[in-house]
Protein backbone atom coordinates (compact mmCIF):
# COMPACT_ATOMS: atom_id res chain seq x y z
CA UNK A 1 0.00 0.00 0.00
CA UNK A 2 1.44 3.35 -0.96
CA UNK A 3 0.94 5.89 1.75
CA UNK A 4 0.77 9.63 1.45
CA UNK A 5 2.63 11.33 4.25
CA UNK A 6 2.42 15.03 5.01
CA UNK A 7 5.12 16.59 7.20
CA UNK A 8 4.52 19.80 9.08
CA UNK A 9 7.58 21.93 8.29
CA UNK A 10 8.31 23.86 11.44
CA UNK A 11 10.06 27.21 11.27
CA UNK A 12 10.32 30.26 13.44
CA UNK A 13 11.27 33.64 12.09
CA UNK A 14 12.32 32.16 8.75
CA UNK A 15 14.65 29.58 10.33
CA UNK A 16 13.89 25.91 9.74
CA UNK A 17 13.75 23.74 12.84
CA UNK A 18 16.20 20.87 12.63
CA UNK A 19 13.81 18.10 13.79
CA UNK A 20 11.62 18.82 10.76
CA UNK A 21 14.36 17.38 8.54
CA UNK A 22 14.27 14.24 10.66
CA UNK A 23 10.50 13.96 10.11
CA UNK A 24 11.03 14.39 6.35
CA UNK A 25 13.62 11.61 6.43
CA UNK A 26 11.19 9.31 8.22
CA UNK A 27 8.30 10.30 5.92
CA UNK A 28 10.33 9.43 2.80
CA UNK A 29 10.96 5.97 4.20
CA UNK A 30 7.25 5.45 4.90
CA UNK A 31 5.78 6.49 1.54
CA UNK A 32 5.18 9.49 -0.71
CA UNK A 33 6.23 12.46 1.39
CA UNK A 34 5.12 16.05 1.00
CA UNK A 35 5.66 19.03 3.26
CA UNK A 36 3.51 21.94 4.40
CA UNK A 37 5.36 24.98 5.62
CA UNK A 38 3.55 27.95 7.11
CA UNK A 39 4.72 31.44 8.02
CA UNK A 40 5.62 34.83 6.67
CA UNK A 41 8.64 35.31 4.40
CA UNK A 42 9.45 31.62 4.31
CA UNK A 43 10.60 31.07 0.73
CA UNK A 44 14.11 30.20 1.95
CA UNK A 45 12.78 27.55 4.32
CA UNK A 46 10.51 26.16 1.59
CA UNK A 47 13.46 25.90 -0.83
CA UNK A 48 15.59 24.11 1.76
CA UNK A 49 12.81 21.60 2.34
CA UNK A 50 12.30 21.12 -1.40
CA UNK A 51 16.02 20.36 -1.54
CA UNK A 52 15.25 17.00 0.07
CA UNK A 53 13.38 16.08 -3.11
CA UNK A 54 9.82 16.31 -1.82
CA UNK A 55 6.99 18.59 -2.98
CA UNK A 56 6.54 21.52 -0.63
CA UNK A 57 3.30 23.42 -0.08
CA UNK A 58 3.87 26.89 1.28
CA UNK A 59 1.35 29.10 3.04
CA UNK A 60 3.25 32.37 3.10
CA UNK A 61 1.27 35.28 4.45
CA UNK A 62 1.85 38.19 6.83
CA UNK A 63 -1.00 36.92 9.03
CA UNK A 64 0.94 33.69 9.55
CA UNK A 65 4.05 35.21 11.05
CA UNK A 66 3.21 33.74 14.46
CA UNK A 67 1.77 30.25 15.03
CA UNK A 68 -1.80 31.06 16.07
CA UNK A 69 -3.19 27.53 16.44
CA UNK A 70 -6.47 27.83 14.54
CA UNK A 71 -4.82 29.59 11.57
CA UNK A 72 -2.02 27.07 11.33
CA UNK A 73 -4.40 24.15 11.77
CA UNK A 74 -6.62 25.39 8.95
CA UNK A 75 -3.63 25.73 6.63
CA UNK A 76 -2.37 22.25 7.57
CA UNK A 77 -5.86 20.86 6.99
CA UNK A 78 -5.95 22.52 3.55
CA UNK A 79 -2.71 20.70 2.76
CA UNK A 80 -4.10 17.40 4.10
CA UNK A 81 -7.07 17.83 1.79
CA UNK A 82 -4.95 18.88 -1.20
CA UNK A 83 -2.52 15.98 -0.86
CA UNK A 84 -4.97 13.33 0.35
CA UNK A 85 -2.47 12.51 3.10
CA UNK A 86 -3.35 9.65 5.39
CA UNK A 87 -0.46 10.32 7.74
CA UNK A 88 0.60 13.68 9.17
CA UNK A 89 3.90 13.98 11.04
CA UNK A 90 4.95 16.76 13.40
CA UNK A 91 8.05 17.03 15.51
CA UNK A 92 7.40 16.69 19.22
CA UNK A 93 8.15 20.35 19.86
CA UNK A 94 6.10 23.04 21.58
CA UNK A 95 4.52 23.89 18.22
CA UNK A 96 4.00 20.29 17.11
CA UNK A 97 2.41 19.28 20.39
CA UNK A 98 0.12 22.29 20.19
CA UNK A 99 -1.18 21.64 16.68
CA UNK A 100 -1.09 17.87 16.15
CA UNK A 101 -3.96 16.88 18.50
CA UNK A 102 -6.30 19.28 16.65
CA UNK A 103 -5.40 17.77 13.29
CA UNK A 104 -5.94 14.27 14.74
CA UNK A 105 -9.36 15.20 16.13
CA UNK A 106 -10.39 17.01 12.92
CA UNK A 107 -9.59 13.92 10.85
CA UNK A 108 -10.73 11.23 13.28
CA UNK A 109 -7.18 9.91 13.11
CA UNK A 110 -5.21 7.73 15.46
CA UNK A 111 -2.80 9.85 17.46
CA UNK A 112 0.58 8.76 18.79
CA UNK A 113 2.77 11.31 20.52
CA UNK A 114 6.50 11.46 21.16
CA UNK A 115 7.33 8.52 18.88
CA UNK A 116 10.80 7.07 19.30
CA UNK A 117 10.14 4.94 16.23
CA UNK A 118 7.35 4.60 13.72
CA UNK A 119 7.09 1.79 11.19
CA UNK A 120 4.53 0.49 8.75
CA UNK A 121 2.92 -2.73 9.90
CA UNK A 122 0.75 -4.21 7.16
CA UNK A 123 -1.88 -1.57 6.47
CA UNK A 124 -1.36 -0.08 9.91
CA UNK A 125 1.58 1.18 11.88
CA UNK A 126 3.48 0.37 14.98
CA UNK A 127 5.19 2.97 17.11
CA UNK A 128 7.33 2.99 20.19
CA UNK A 129 7.05 5.68 22.80
CA UNK A 130 8.00 6.35 26.37
CA UNK A 131 5.37 6.47 29.11
CA UNK A 132 5.36 7.40 32.79
CA UNK A 133 7.99 10.01 32.08
CA UNK A 134 10.51 7.41 30.97
CA UNK A 135 9.76 4.70 33.53
CA UNK A 136 8.29 2.45 30.83
CA UNK A 137 8.20 2.08 27.06
CA UNK A 138 5.20 1.06 25.02
CA UNK A 139 4.62 -0.49 21.64
CA UNK A 140 1.51 1.13 20.22
CA UNK A 141 -0.30 -0.18 17.16
CA UNK A 142 -2.33 1.95 14.81
CA UNK A 143 -5.33 0.18 13.34
CA UNK A 144 -5.13 -1.09 9.81
CA UNK A 145 -6.29 1.53 7.34
CA UNK A 146 -6.71 4.26 9.97
CA UNK A 147 -5.40 7.75 9.42
CA UNK A 148 -2.50 8.62 11.65
CA UNK A 149 -1.20 11.81 13.23
CA UNK A 150 2.07 11.45 15.11
CA UNK A 151 4.64 13.62 16.81
CA UNK A 152 8.21 12.40 16.47
CA UNK A 153 10.77 12.85 19.21
CA UNK A 154 13.68 15.02 18.05
CA UNK A 155 16.79 12.96 17.45
CA UNK A 156 14.90 9.71 16.83
CA UNK A 157 15.66 9.71 13.09
CA UNK A 158 18.50 11.02 10.94
CA UNK A 159 17.82 14.15 8.93
CA UNK A 160 16.69 13.78 5.30
CA UNK A 161 19.49 14.15 2.82
CA UNK A 162 19.59 16.66 0.03
CA UNK A 163 18.25 15.03 -3.10
CA UNK A 164 16.98 17.79 -5.37
CA UNK A 165 13.88 17.61 -7.49
CA UNK A 166 11.32 18.96 -5.05
CA UNK A 167 9.25 21.96 -6.07
CA UNK A 168 7.59 24.63 -3.98
CA UNK A 169 3.99 25.49 -4.68
CA UNK A 170 1.80 28.00 -2.90
CA UNK A 171 -0.97 26.46 -0.86
CA UNK A 172 -4.44 27.54 -1.79
CA UNK A 173 -6.01 28.28 1.54
CA UNK A 174 -8.32 30.78 3.13
CA UNK A 175 -8.26 31.83 6.76
CA UNK A 176 -11.18 30.73 8.94
CA UNK A 177 -13.72 33.44 9.82
CA UNK A 178 -13.43 33.21 13.55
CA UNK A 179 -10.05 32.89 15.12
CA UNK A 180 -10.31 32.74 18.89
CA UNK A 181 -6.66 32.52 19.90
CA UNK A 182 -4.10 34.83 18.36
CA UNK A 183 -0.40 34.84 19.12
CA UNK A 184 0.47 38.51 19.58
CA UNK A 185 4.12 38.23 20.55
CA UNK A 186 6.92 35.69 20.62
CA UNK A 187 9.76 36.16 23.03
CA UNK A 188 12.85 34.12 22.46
CA UNK A 189 15.50 34.41 25.13
CA UNK A 190 18.72 34.81 23.19
CA UNK A 191 20.87 31.76 23.84
CA UNK A 192 23.69 30.15 22.02
CA UNK A 193 22.87 26.85 23.72
CA UNK A 194 20.85 24.23 21.79
CA UNK A 195 17.36 23.21 22.97
CA UNK A 196 17.25 20.61 25.71
CA UNK A 197 14.98 18.29 23.72
CA UNK A 198 17.25 18.27 20.65
CA UNK A 199 20.72 18.31 22.15
CA UNK A 200 23.34 15.55 21.76
CA UNK A 201 25.03 16.65 24.97
CA UNK A 202 23.46 18.03 28.15
CA UNK A 203 25.07 19.41 31.27
CA UNK A 204 22.64 19.73 34.18
CA UNK A 205 22.91 21.20 37.65
CA UNK A 206 21.11 20.67 40.95
CA UNK A 207 20.88 21.90 44.49
CA UNK A 208 24.50 20.94 45.12
CA UNK A 209 25.36 24.23 43.40
CA UNK A 210 24.06 25.97 46.53
CA UNK A 211 23.12 29.30 44.93
CA UNK A 212 21.60 30.61 41.71
CA UNK A 213 24.75 32.41 40.59
CA UNK A 214 26.75 29.17 40.72
CA UNK A 215 24.73 27.81 37.81
CA UNK A 216 27.44 29.53 35.81
CA UNK A 217 29.62 26.51 36.63
CA UNK A 218 27.21 24.36 34.61
CA UNK A 219 27.22 26.81 31.72
CA UNK A 220 31.02 26.87 31.70
CA UNK A 221 31.18 23.08 31.39
CA UNK A 222 28.50 23.15 28.68
CA UNK A 223 30.22 25.83 26.59
CA UNK A 224 33.19 23.85 25.18
CA UNK A 225 30.85 20.91 24.47
CA UNK A 226 28.26 23.03 22.67
CA UNK A 227 25.87 21.35 25.11
CA UNK A 228 22.39 22.28 26.25
CA UNK A 229 21.96 23.08 29.92
CA UNK A 230 19.38 21.43 32.17
CA UNK A 231 18.39 21.38 35.80
CA UNK A 232 16.76 19.37 38.55
CA UNK A 233 13.34 20.44 39.70
CA UNK A 234 14.77 21.57 43.04
CA UNK A 235 16.57 24.51 41.46
CA UNK A 236 13.76 25.25 39.03
CA UNK A 237 11.39 25.51 41.98
CA UNK A 238 13.92 27.69 43.77
CA UNK A 239 13.73 30.07 40.81
CA UNK A 240 17.42 29.78 39.89
CA UNK A 241 16.67 28.79 36.29
CA UNK A 242 13.55 28.88 34.05
CA UNK A 243 11.00 26.04 34.03
CA UNK A 244 11.98 24.81 30.62
CA UNK A 245 15.38 23.78 31.99
CA UNK A 246 13.80 21.00 34.07
CA UNK A 247 14.81 17.46 33.20
CA UNK A 248 12.66 14.65 34.53
CA UNK A 249 9.30 13.00 34.67
CA UNK A 250 7.50 16.33 34.96
CA UNK A 251 10.06 18.23 32.91
CA UNK A 252 11.66 17.27 29.62
CA UNK A 253 12.53 13.62 29.01
CA UNK A 254 15.91 13.57 27.33
CA UNK A 255 18.15 10.98 25.77
CA UNK A 256 21.37 12.68 24.68
CA UNK A 257 24.60 10.87 23.86
CA UNK A 258 26.23 12.43 26.92
CA UNK A 259 24.54 13.67 30.12
CA UNK A 260 26.62 15.30 32.85
CA UNK A 261 24.84 15.76 36.21
CA UNK A 262 26.46 18.13 38.66
CA UNK A 263 25.23 18.36 42.24
CA UNK A 264 22.10 16.35 41.41
CA UNK A 265 21.08 13.56 43.81
CA UNK A 266 19.21 11.44 41.25
CA UNK A 267 15.65 11.32 42.60
CA UNK A 268 13.35 8.82 40.86
CA UNK A 269 11.60 11.63 38.93
CA UNK A 270 14.91 13.00 37.69
CA UNK A 271 16.27 9.58 36.68
CA UNK A 272 13.07 8.82 34.77
CA UNK A 273 13.77 11.77 32.49
CA UNK A 274 17.40 11.03 31.62
CA UNK A 275 18.21 7.39 32.27
CA UNK A 276 18.13 6.43 28.60
CA UNK A 277 21.01 8.80 27.84
CA UNK A 278 23.95 7.19 26.07
CA UNK A 279 26.66 8.00 28.60
CA UNK A 280 25.94 9.43 32.04
CA UNK A 281 28.50 11.28 34.15
CA UNK A 282 27.80 12.31 37.74
CA UNK A 283 29.65 14.73 39.97
CA UNK A 284 28.40 14.61 43.55
CA UNK A 285 30.11 14.83 46.91
CA UNK A 286 27.95 12.06 48.40
CA UNK A 287 29.13 8.59 47.27
CA UNK A 288 25.69 7.20 48.25
CA UNK A 289 23.77 9.55 45.93
CA UNK A 290 21.39 7.49 43.76
CA UNK A 291 22.67 9.20 40.61
CA UNK A 292 25.78 6.98 40.87
CA UNK A 293 23.58 3.90 40.37
CA UNK A 294 22.96 4.94 36.76
CA UNK A 295 26.19 6.80 36.01
CA UNK A 296 28.77 5.28 33.66
CA UNK A 297 31.45 7.49 35.17
CA UNK A 298 31.26 9.05 38.60
CA UNK A 299 33.36 11.60 40.39
CA UNK A 300 32.83 11.75 44.12
CA UNK A 301 33.86 15.31 44.78
CA UNK A 302 33.00 18.91 45.34
CA UNK A 303 31.36 20.46 42.30
CA UNK A 304 33.04 23.78 43.12
CA UNK A 305 36.44 22.18 42.67
CA UNK A 306 35.59 19.74 39.88
CA UNK A 307 33.50 21.93 37.55
CA UNK A 308 36.15 24.60 36.79
CA UNK A 309 38.79 21.93 36.17
CA UNK A 310 36.40 20.00 33.95
CA UNK A 311 35.52 23.11 31.95
CA UNK A 312 39.25 23.69 31.43
CA UNK A 313 40.03 20.09 30.39
CA UNK A 314 37.07 19.99 28.02
CA UNK A 315 38.20 23.23 26.44
CA UNK A 316 41.58 21.61 25.74
CA UNK A 317 40.05 18.35 24.54
CA UNK A 318 37.63 19.98 22.12
CA UNK A 319 39.78 22.78 20.72
Amino acid sequence: MSRKILVFGEQRGGALKKPTMECVGLAKSLGDAEVIVIGSGISGVAETLAGTGVPVHAADDASLEYPSPELYVSAIQAAVDATGADVVLFSASAMGRDLAPRIAARNGAGFVSECLSLEADGDGFKARKSMYGGKAFAQVSVKSGAKLVATIKPGAYPAAETAGGGAVQPLSWSAPDNVGATVTAVEQIASDRPDLGEADTIVAGGRGLKEAEHFKLVEDVAAPLGAAVGASRAIVDAGWVPHHYQVGQTGTTVSPKLYIAMGISGAIQHLAGMRTSGCIVAVNKDPEAPIFKVADYGIVGDVFEVAPLLAEELKKATS
Binding site: M95, T182, V183, T184, E187, Q188, S191, D195, H244
Partner: peptide, 8 residues
Protein backbone atom coordinates in the same frame (compact mmCIF):
# COMPACT_ATOMS: atom_id res chain seq x y z
CA UNK B 1 8.01 27.26 24.05
CA UNK B 2 11.62 26.12 23.62
CA UNK B 3 13.79 28.80 25.12
CA UNK B 4 11.05 31.41 25.31
CA UNK B 5 7.37 32.15 25.31
CA UNK B 6 4.39 33.14 23.19
CA UNK B 7 1.73 35.60 24.28
CA UNK B 8 -1.79 34.84 23.08
Amino acid sequence: IEGGSETL
